[in-house]
Design a protein around this nucleic acid. Sequence first.
DNA 1: ACCTGAACACCGTTCAAGT
DNA 2: ACCTGAACACCGTTCAAGT
Lengths: 204, 204
Amino acid sequence: MQLSRADVLDGAIEILDQYGLADLTMRRLASSLGVRPGALYWHFTDKQTLLAAITDHTLAPALDGCDAEQDPAAALRALAVRIRDALLARRDGAEVASASFAAGLSGDGVRVELTAAARAAGLTEPEASYAAETLLLLVVGQVLDEQTRMQMDSAGALAAGDSPLDDPSARAGTSRGADRFAFGLDTFLAGLLGLPAQRPAGAR
Amino acid sequence: MQLSRADVLDGAIEILDQYGLADLTMRRLASSLGVRPGALYWHFTDKQTLLAAITDHTLAPALDGCDAEQDPAAALRALAVRIRDALLARRDGAEVASASFAAGLSGDGVRVELTAAARAAGLTEPEASYAAETLLLLVVGQVLDEQTRMQMDSAGALAAGDSPLDDPSARAGTSRGADRFAFGLDTFLAGLLGLPAQRPAGAR
DNA sequence: ACCTGAACACCGTTCAAGT
DNA sequence: ACCTGAACACCGTTCAAGT
């Protein structure tokens, strides 16, 4: 059967989720699809474009805005959380997204939605787009940190020959990431909307 | 003469500043030093470690805390600005730093100083370190964006065959980056310290 | 201690030629 | 239209052997 653009994208996502970004090479992708490396370049002009397509696919669930019934401040916060969840759900999602954003090949969708949500929350034009970009920075940077730590933890655990059981410190690390994310997000939103910073329930 | 670790570091920084991170390869560095690639591995265990040394060198000026006479909130803000200036002064500084931080091979210095400044500004223990990490995220992410845009602008200008004269839009882009940085930083600090967000003077 | 020579195991991308 | 064959121009890293 003939290879479609969607087949290439699906194959890339499968390698990414199973082996991580370092193992997602054009040559490896080609051989997993039973094709020569050059064949991929008929469907995607280069690797950056392929990564951007992965980013769009990763972020799509965050843009299916659910209920528009909430108050605007809560809606803005909820959008940031949905973006975080989407990135976190894909292995190395933040690193791939960060590269795609830097290349200018993805991220318009989230930026548009974030800007609209910021406007709905009462911000005027120059601030709304600054706020959107800063929020995106905050979310991507945070998840980048979290996923880097995950990958180092699992590599370390493997190297040390630890048992593959979930250990409590790993779970603690995860919830620490969530706490830090909530802290950064709520602090920024407090400054943005003039609310008093409502700190998340104290340290665990 | 024999090659020292400092020679390797200096050579790397020279290539970085003149040609950018993409051209800073171990092979190119070796040939610019008149040595075989393998020789570098006697002085640095690997490329990541070399990049981390560059990051330390880049950030050093930001840690020479000048006057400690200001009020703590202003000192925290000034530290963030000095970190931005240091990253901005080195070509691809934010990208190199971001890689070094992710690898866990650099960044302790700035994190310690930021945490101390946050404590001095009245934050208690869990918040002070969260605030430090979030501020670092904000600064690095912001400069990453700015430097990426710079590099795309200069590449675009070259490709389009534009005259090498400084054009007004390039200067405008630079000051827009500064405005956005000030917005993100001041908004976050307002949320952090409970101050009213003092927006920078309106759009230019 | 410090470096060379030479290899190992890869990369992304291009492009004439085939079907 | 879609893909192969085969190359081009590179990478980071290792390591016996030299001095």
